Amino acid sequence: MGRIFSDILLEKYKSELGRGLSEALRRLDATFVRADSFNFYTSVAVITSSKIEGEPMEVDSYIKHKIQHIEYLPELTEKPNDLFRAYIYAKENRLTSNHFLQAHRLLTEHLLPEHGRGVYRKNEMVVMEHKTGKIQFEAASARLLEGEMEKLWQDIDFLLHADLPLEETFYYASFIHLLFVCIHPFNDGNGRAARLLEKWFLSDKLGPVAWYIQSEQYYYRHVDEYYLNLNRLGIFYEQLDFTKADRFLMMLPGALPA
């Protein structure tokens, strides 16, 4: 491994994390015993991840839509429902680059034209902040993109087959999320895809309990901190300083029950 990921912060991460991940996961696993738990908590994950990207539908309304089958206007439900289908697909399939591209096709059905779904962009990309419209950062250039994604998937494949301690599983799940956002490989849907990718990796490593980690809801509730921590690395992809990634990496464990 080591083509694109860095373990430069791993020891610091472990020391700040302390102990208790295993107990937090045990408590989480014991909580969700009902057959409909996955649909409920996936609904929460989907709508909060969507709202980070500016979708207008309220969290409570979407839960009513998915759990109680209440109808709303299609323009409110179409894109969250696409993302919900992508989560179902991820739950039913192992994480691979091809499966991930298919998940992107699903989550962008009402976001991108057909030729833009599940394919990497060929153009340059500047990422804008949703609230202010200010430039956040310049993503990986088109000339670098395919090579960076190839390295990313090689490292992900290595990690999926490695026997990782729990702390390292969380560290690399967050690093996958972070790197994917920085590369920003698609024309749109990158944020939603990144948060799904993080959860998908965790589920392949930890089993079904990972789907109940409310990381998307945590990021939504701390959305200003989420973007600030992403921006700490720098503006230009080739000049990113991953020694400043520590605050972002610590957000995922914050989503676990205390």
Rank of each mutant, 00 (worst) to 15 (best):
A139F: 12
S50R: 14
L202K: 08
P74M: 08
A90F: 02
D224F: 10
L17Y: 05
I4F: 03
S6F: 13
L252M: 10
K151R: 15
I52C: 13
Y41T: 00
E11L: 05
A30N: 11
E71G: 13
I4E: 08
L144S: 15
R143C: 01
G118M: 05
E109W: 14
L233Q: 05
E78F: 14
K51I: 12
V127N: 06
A142Q: 15
C182A: 08
L144G: 02
K205C: 09
I8T: 04
T42W: 01
D188G: 12
L164P: 10
Y120D: 07
L252G: 08
L152F: 14
R34Y: 00
A86E: 09
D60Y: 11
D188W: 03
A173G: 13
Y62A: 08
W200D: 07
E114R: 10
I176P: 09
H110D: 11
M125G: 01
Q214I: 01
L166R: 02
T31Q: 01
I4A: 04
G191L: 06
A258T: 08
H104T: 05
L25I: 05
L101I: 04
M149F: 08
S6V: 10
P208L: 06
K151T: 04
S6R: 11
L10F: 10
V126K: 07
L152A: 15
V33R: 12
R221F: 09
S174V: 12
F5V: 15
S15M: 03
S61K: 12
A194D: 08
D163Y: 04
G116H: 05
W200Q: 02
S49I: 02
A194C: 04
L178Y: 14
I4Y: 03
D224I: 04
Y120C: 11
E75T: 13
G18D: 09
R19Y: 07
M128C: 01
Y89Q: 07
K91P: 03
H161V: 10
F38G: 04
W200V: 03
W153Q: 14
G133R: 03
I156A: 07
A90S: 14
R221P: 00
I156D: 13
Y89T: 09
L240R: 15
E148L: 05
E216T: 09
L179K: 14
L166Y: 13
K134G: 07
K66S: 14
D60C: 01
T42F: 02
Q239C: 02
L206S: 05
V33W: 04
A35Y: 12
T243I: 11
E109H: 14
H65R: 03
L256A: 10
E75N: 12
L73I: 10
G207L: 09
L166G: 02
D157E: 09
M149E: 02
F201L: 10
I183K: 06
G147K: 00
P80F: 00
N39G: 07
N123W: 00
L256C: 06
D36I: 01
L197I: 02
R105I: 01
G147S: 11
L9P: 06
D60F: 12
M128W: 13
S141H: 14
L17S: 09
R195N: 11
K134I: 06
L179D: 03
H115E: 15
M250I: 06
I235N: 00
I70V: 15
N187F: 01
E148M: 14
L76S: 02
F175C: 00
P74S: 15
V126C: 03
M125H: 05
D7H: 04
E150M: 15
L230E: 07
G147F: 02
N39P: 01
A210E: 06
I52S: 09
G133F: 00
